Simulated scan of single mutants.
Amino acid sequence: MSAPDQSQPGRAALWMIGSIVSFSAMAVAGRELSTDLDTFELMTYRSLIGVVIVAGVALATGRAGQIATDRFGRHLIRNIAHFTGQNLWFYAISMIPLAQVFALEFTSPLWVILLAPIFLDERLSLRKLAVVAVGFSGILLVAQPGGAPISIGTFAAAGAAMAFAMTGILTKQLTRSASVICILFYLTTMQLVFGLICAGIDGDIAWPSLANLPWIVVVGIGGLTAHFCITTALTLAPATIVMPIDFARLPVIAIVGMMLYAEPISLAVLIGAVLIFGANYVNIQHETRPRAPRPGAP
């Protein structure tokens, strides 16, 4: 596990690209499943696949001993936050355009950067604030506030963003003492329990059809690989560097929405994407450039 003075933002950025691909695939699968399964059922099946994969990897690689119980409470709080955010996210995907969901979700890195100095003891510089401001202006261009009536899906996406921000902060705290396999084990097992309780509270859990099974596999594997990539990235660089990279998901999902669901891409989306990419490029370039030795340093 990388120490703070061994930050590797370049490698962290590569891991975040993996999370972007995974989240985009999961969004498409979630949209396809929304007509047959509610969000609690979807989360149950997703978590079940995750439990099987994580447990299998832990046993096959001899890392089952890394699953410790000393921070059980912190894992519980993290996964309640994530379960809440993920259910709101899946619900929003079924209600409003994919690009709008992702745009609203991307207020999450803004909250992470602002809260990281309080919870993670990370330095908040004017440059990081400027990067967030530029990135957020791009998000506003893409979301085009006022361009469409605000719906319950809009509020769901905004609520998901706040829950994901807390998830990111708690994940960074856990990476200081817990392994990736430990974090993923608690993620999948706890959320399987949460899903079973919420989906079964009415005594009726829908079984997926054969046609839906491939999409459920995509959701299960995509969710797991996305969190593996993010958790690994957070071990390589500070949260204030890792989370803003996620902005790149927005133009990607806008293109996906246009190709699969005929959701239009406007000039504002393109301009917003340029601002988002530009902000992240400046941030990564600054963090990866060689540091000049301090005067008097050996």
Rank of each mutant, 00 (worst) to 15 (best):
F228S: 04
A133M: 05
I169D: 00
C198K: 10
I216M: 08
A226E: 06
I181H: 04
N212W: 04
I230G: 01
K172R: 08
F155N: 01
A143I: 14
G138I: 09
F185S: 13
G223P: 00
S125L: 08
T171H: 02
M190V: 07
A130T: 14
R176T: 13
S125K: 03
L126N: 10
A226G: 02
I197E: 09
L192N: 06
I201R: 11
L187E: 11
C229T: 15
T189P: 02
V218S: 05
I139S: 04
P149V: 11
F185R: 03
A165R: 00
I152V: 14
V193L: 13
G195Y: 08
D204K: 09
M190C: 06
G200P: 06
L196Q: 07
V193M: 07
P149E: 13
A143M: 14
V217E: 01
A160Y: 04
C182I: 11
T171N: 06
L187M: 15
M190H: 05
G203F: 07
L170F: 09
L126Y: 12
S177P: 10
I230Y: 10
A143V: 15
I169P: 01
G195H: 07
L224H: 02
L124K: 02
V219M: 07
T154D: 14
Q191P: 09
V180D: 04
L170D: 00
V219I: 12
F194Q: 00
V132K: 02
M162F: 15
S177F: 13
A178P: 08
L187D: 10
K172I: 03
E122S: 04
R123Q: 14
T154E: 12
P145K: 05
Y186E: 06
T171V: 12
Q173T: 12
M166H: 05
V131S: 07
V217N: 00
T188H: 08
C182T: 13
G168E: 00
I183S: 06
Q144C: 03
T167E: 07
Y186D: 05
V132I: 15
P208W: 02
M190K: 01
D202Q: 13
L184Y: 10
L140V: 15
T225D: 04
G146K: 01
E122I: 11
A178S: 14
F136Q: 05
